[in-house]
Design a protein around this nucleic acid. Structure first.
Length: 330
DNA sequence: GATGCGTGGCG
DNA sequence: TCGCCAAGCAT
């Protein structure tokens, strides 16, 4: 694109952003000079998470942990408890580890340095460096990908094409504002379905709009099929205490505590027979859907006098475990 | 480069 | 209803 035309496009977008951008809790300071801790926290929360939900968690975290030292000093269990229900729980563990690194070394002051922290990838590092220090590095997320793909009418943008294009187009003097403006445009107007091109400040520059291909650009990604998982949950309880085991660090709900689950290959009765607890009480069934998993869980309960029972409400639990435990007290 | 990882909103 | 989607990262 000719330089003069690119300048026009940039100013059109920045003007729109300056007047129309939403006010969000992490946007109270000017883009480019924001508090690094708050930018980092918000960006991690926003990874694959909707803005409306990130807002709640952001406010709770900021209240509980006003700065990185407070977050670093907290027990991991407290961080996970505050993260409860937000999903992708590895983010919470990375957040805590990164906070401990920063409590010692201080906050990173460049894209490259942010990139070293756990849970901070290329997008997040670029977003933080540009929004907190105005570093001239392009942040490419799903919104920017969609906006750039449509502007160029490129249905299948590769990662390298996106990075080059985004960096070429970056308005360096206001890097933070520019990145946030592209993201905002993708989130508010240039949406996956039914983009509002008539309100878009870039519509006259946009090839997909001019050629009426926005519904096909970018091409939808193929997704893995949803897998159904049949499982048996066994609640071992005494009064209002239950036994919770820690799930393997790697897999589903890794590292979280939860009700013991076992794959259900045969029928529940014979499985309980094998476990030596044929008298366990049937409580009901739980259905729970994740992006690629459909859980069907039959829930049984049995009295237990083991000494390691805990109060479930004090532990960070997944939604699946919350549903399972809800059957205990109807 | 492909997978796996949660949850809730939306049409 | 149900499939798609949301400010990605780690492996």
């Amino acid at each position: 694109m000719p330089l003069l035309k690119l300048r026009k496009l940039q100013l059109s977008l920045l003007e729109w952003y300056d007047s129309e951008a939403r006010v969000l809790p992490w946007r109270l300071q000017a883009a480019g000079s924001r508090d690094g801790y708050q930018v980092w926290l918000s960006e991690v929360l926003l990874q694959q998470t909707q803005v409306s939900r990130a807002i709640l968690y952001f406010q709770n975290f900021l209240e509980a942990f006003p700065d990185v030292r407070a977050l670093a000093a907290a027990p991991l269990e407290d961080v996970l408890k505050l993260w409860e229900g937000a999903g992708y729980y590895a983010r919470a563990r990375s957040l805590h580890r990164a906070a401990q690194i920063m409590a010692v070394r201080g906050l990173p002051s460049s894209f490259e340095a942010w990139l070293e922290l756990p849970g901070v990838g290329r997008y997040t590092a670029a977003a933080i460096a540009s929004l907190s220090a105005n570093q001239a590095v392009a942040a490419v997320d799903g919104n920017v990908r969609r906006v750039l793909a449509r502007l160029h009418n490129n249905p299948n943008p590769t990662e390298s094409w996106l990075l080059e294009t985004a960096q070429d187009w970056l308005f360096a003097a206001r890097a933070g504002a520019w990145n946030e403006a592209l993201i905002e445009l993708g989130a508010v107007l240039c949406t996956p379905k039914k983009p509002r091109c008539s309100d878009c400040p870039l519509s006259s520059f946009c090839k997909a709009n001019l050629e009426q291909t926005t519904s096909r650009v970018p091409a939808p990604k193929t997704r893995a099929k949803v897998k159904t998982i049949q499982a048996l949950a066994l609640i071992q309880f005494h009064a209002d205490l239950v036994f919770l085991e820690q799930r393997p660090k790697k897999g589903l709900l890794g590292g979280l505590f939860g009700v013991p689950l076992m794959a259900l290959n045969a029928d529940a009765a014979s499985t309980l027979e094998e476990l030596g607890i044929p008298d366990a009480q049937f409580l009901g069934t739980v259905s729970h859907t994740m992006t690629h998993r459909q859980f069907e869980v039959v829930v049984y309960a049995i009295q237990s006098k083991r000494s390691d029972l805990v109060l479930a409400k004090n532990v960070a639990l997944s939604r699946l475990d919350q549903k399972i435990l809800a059957l205990l007290q109807p």
